[in-house]
């Protein structure tokens, strides 16, 4: 069930790891960026999107405590309506906790909406050159 439903904000690849992309140059060769997770100062931060506007902080924290202890949590509210904007940042001490959470919760439904769970910060590195057809054809 983890990444089976990829509807929202997920058109760029898998659940946050090793995403690849190409530049928009008009040449035939394109360098590939590979995004790996980037550690933050105090831990590993994941980015949740697609949260229902009536989501409650406690419910989100409860849910995201299943695969690790939530060290830090940020939820933003729409200044006009006072409702949840739709994204949250959740920090774990260990990379494995964050990765397990991404694997298990990405594409899951919460309050009737499909949520996306990705890394918040990434470490891009150019891993080589490829033709556009290689990228599109994978």
């Amino acid at each position: 069930m983890s990444a089976s439903d990829r509807r929202e904000g997920t058109r760029h690849g898998d659940s946050g790891q090793n995403q690849e992309s190409s530049d928009d140059g008009d040449g035939s060769t394109h360098s590939i960026l590979r995004y790996g997770p980037q550690k933050s100062v105090d831990g590993w931060v994941i980015f949740v999107t697609g949260l229902h506007e009536e989501s409650q902080e406690d419910d989100i924290i409860d849910m995201f405590s299943e695969h690790g202890q939530v060290k830090d949590f940020k939820l933003s509210y729409n200044r006009r309506t006072g409702q949840v904007i739709g994204y949250a940042m959740i920090e774990y001490a260990r990379q494995s906790e964050a990765q397990d959470t991404i694997n298990n919760f990405h594409g899951k439904r919460f309050l009737g909406k499909t949520i996306s769970v990705h890394w918040a910060f990434v470490k891009p590195s150019v891993v080589g050159e490829s033709t556009l057809s290689d990228i599109d054809g994978r």
């Binding site: 904000g9 997920t10 058109r11 760029h12 690849g13 946050g16 995403q19 992309s21 995004y35 980037q38 980015f47 999107t49 904007i85 739709g86 994204y87 996306s116 990705h118 890394w119 918040a120 910060f121 990434v122 470490k123 891009p124």
Partner: peptide, 15 residues
Amino acid sequence: EVYVSPAVVEEFRRL
């Protein structure tokens, strides 16, 4: 300066 993931860029775009 930090790189955010495509999901974060997508959220900026959505806003």
